[in-house]
Design a binder for these strands. Structure first.
Lengths: 344, 344
DNA sequence: GTGAAAGCGCTAACAG
DNA sequence: CTGTTAGCGCTTTCAC
């Protein structure tokens, strides 16, 4: 019972029904014209022999699969796992099988995954993060495989994302309104450099508009993508920041996960949020909304991002046309919660 | 530039290198013996024409893929998304491509995904949840496709999970030690009925050992898999529970996400955790460890679950043997944090 | 309406 | 050591 014969093929069905291969194929695909009588017989035979079409063979002869790849930077980050889930839903509903791949944020791991997708002849790829492997992206393009980057802007590719700069500007303006003048900017390896740059631009822009000088020492990017609150190094870095003459009274953080970690760290250092220090994040993951966490943050419209991203790949796949570039930038919204307060 | 010729095949490489198909195939697979000179020429040709092996064609002729499916109940639940990530890592490292599918916990959606995997001739399946679709599971078995259920016990299948009953027993004993006598048990649709039953058993067992009578009205299963704290109905249910003559002083919850939601709800109702009510969860997701949340919970060893689960499928795939059943039950550990306290 | 035949791109004997 | 050959399971003209 552990090694049964090979699974039944279309030929087995044909024999069982006393018709030819092509007739079976026709009724399966609903193509051509088949008399009701034959159809019934074929359907019966399919059930009898327990036939299940072989997608591999079909793909080979059709020279196209119905598989689309989803590349995720970090499935453990709820923002991405939820996006992935939404995109998977949408694509599955449209009749595609999805291969979700986790890249760990490493470029090499990303290239490997894309190569695997290419070998499996994926018909399209949705990237929930893109480290900028341009040679590969170009290859995709050259082979006519649509790729759309979701949640971060890419100059030369289809993409749908949020206006990062505008989001941060909103957040920083909120802090400024609360009287903060020394506002630190913290980002992490969890955020693509490109996205980080855009968010940082928003930060500088907001400061400039308010006539607050930009101080480089208040800007730190922490590359270690691990959880920070358990990271001694990170704690020291934060302490250093807080010991500076121009001690920041607020932190703009480029990602909720890191923002929450920062709150954690600050509280370990004996500071209260928001009484002593305000913190604002970016993404608005479910977690941020918990009363216990209550993080003020910039919300990304996840459903829209997923919906639009999926729609674009599907359209590209459908029409086979990769032009013109489709680039969407959605408006983020500030969600004010309990991690920000009037400056002390 | 948008519609280029079909991707190069092995034949293109052969022609370019002036050898036969099989020689190219040999160097690609490292099979047979090939002179260094020819190999060089072939390698050069591969690079020149930009050849990428077609996994579809290979799978067809080999009559086996290197694809393994991962079924997840809810990617938005960090416990599962992290498990999925770990399993994917492990399988990818072993040279397999993974198709991660989200089932939303629906049995029909689960069946659809499995059917798709079957059509794509997956060589193995890791189920991070299993609603008990036995007909399909049997079909997998009949076709010799290994399937291992991770994180919940399945009588008739390979599985690796935690000793749910023991975990809950640990937790409830902890509550009893703190002086609690009226301990409610709350579970949700997020947890498979089977798993829930095991956990409930642990609850009853612990009560019995302590000579505390089991009161059915203190046990509630909330089927709605949505976030609870925004659910008016749920709030009413909790209020009802707390209004009962034998008002519970502690809650054993079968899942961290729900436990956190419950804390939220309790606090909305004006109760303090743990001063007025203690709460303990199950899973130990990252979130539970945040100082702001600080949930006492039963930890599942995720890395081990993922590691063992992956190892089992890989071995099954390797040996082609589905016997004997491999069923592992790991020991959970209680992590005491700040959501439990001496009864008031 | 239905069947026969020619592959899709590749692997795996088997000859040379 | 290299080339020839026969398919893998299916779709898709094109005759009958």
């Amino acid at each position: 019972m552990s090694g049964e014969g090979r699974p039944p093929t279309i030929l087995d069905v044909a024999r069982h029904a006393g018709v030819s291969k092509s007739t079976v194929s026709n009724v399966i695909r609903g193509a051509g014209k088949t008399s009701d009588a034959t159809r019934e017989r074929v359907l019966g035979a399919i059930a009898d022999v327990g036939y299940r079409p072989n997608a591999i063979a079909r793909s080979l002869v059709r020279r196209r699969t119905t598989t689309v790849g989803i590349l995720v930077g970090d499935l453990a980050n709820p923002f991405y796992s939820e996006l992935a889930k939404l995109v998977e839903q949408r694509l599955t509903a449209a009749g595609y099988a999805t291969m979700i791949c986790n890249t760990d944020g490493h470029a090499t791991s990303e290239r490997l995954r894309i190569e695997s997708l290419l070998e499996h002849r994926a018909t399209g790829i949705v990237m929930l993060q893109f480290s900028g492997e341009w040679p590969l992206a170009d290859e995709l393009h050259a082979q006519g495989i649509p790729m759309v980057v979701v949640s971060c802007w890419e100059e030369a590719s289809d993409c749908v994302c949020v206006d990062d700069a505008a989001g941060v500007r909103l957040a920083v303006e909120h802090l400024i309104e609360l009287g903060h003048r020394r506002i630190a900017y913290l980002s992490s390896g969890l955020v693509e450099p490109k996205t980080d740059r855009a968010r940082n631009d928003g930060y500088r822009h907001a400061l400039r508009s308010a006539g607050i000088p930009y101080e480089p020492e208040l800007v730190v990017r922490w590359e270690e993508p691990a959880y920070l609150s358990s990271d001694r190094q990170f704690m020291l870095e934060v302490e250093r920041l807080l010991a500076a003459p121009a001690r920041p009274t607020a932190f703009m953080v480029s990602n909720d996960l890191v923002a929450i970690d920062l709150m954690e760290t600050l509280e370990q250092l004996g500071l209260r949020v928001p009484a002593d220090v305000s913190v604002v994040g970016f993404d608005d993951i479910a977690l941020a909304g918990l009363a216990r966490v209550s993080l003020t943050t910039v919300a990304q419209p996840r459903e829209q991002l997923a919906e639009l991203g999926s729609t674009i790949v599907l359209e590209r796949i459908d029409t086979g046309d990769l032009h013109p570039l489709r680039q969407l930038r959605l408006e983020p919204a500030l969600v004010v919660r309990g991690s920000t307060a009037q400056v002390a």
